[in-house]
């Protein structure tokens, strides 16, 4: 399984004018890891759930903002 967000640590200069954001992150949604959707992927239980997520398949759902976001990170 892949992770939906990746993290990196930019160089922090002692002379940065703004308080540094030590960890930066970016979204890596599921479409990056699937070339072709396989048949028979499990779907959401109800149509309403699917509508609220914007897709029929839980495996294609990409959360945003990062649910695991910490205070020291920037999206």
């Amino acid at each position: 399984m892949f992770s939906q967000f990746k993290y990196w640590e930019p160089y922090i200069s002692p002379f940065d004018p703004c308080p540094p954001i030590r960890v930066k992150s970016y979204s890596t949604p599921p479409n990056l890891y699937i070339n072709f959707q396989p048949p028979g992927m499990p779907q959401f239980k109800t149509p309403k759930q699917a509508l609220l997520h914007g897709t029929l398949w839980p495996d294609l759902y990409s959360p945003y903002p990062n649910p695991a976001k910490r205070g020291d990170q920037l999206e």
Partner: peptide
């Protein structure tokens, strides 16, 4: 967020088109 998810799905569909 709904609109953002649709972009993710569309991207996948275009990848499938390339395949």
């Amino acid at each position: 967020k709904f609109l953002r998810e649709r972009e993710v799905i569309h991207s996948l569909r275009f990848r499938e088109a390339v395949e």
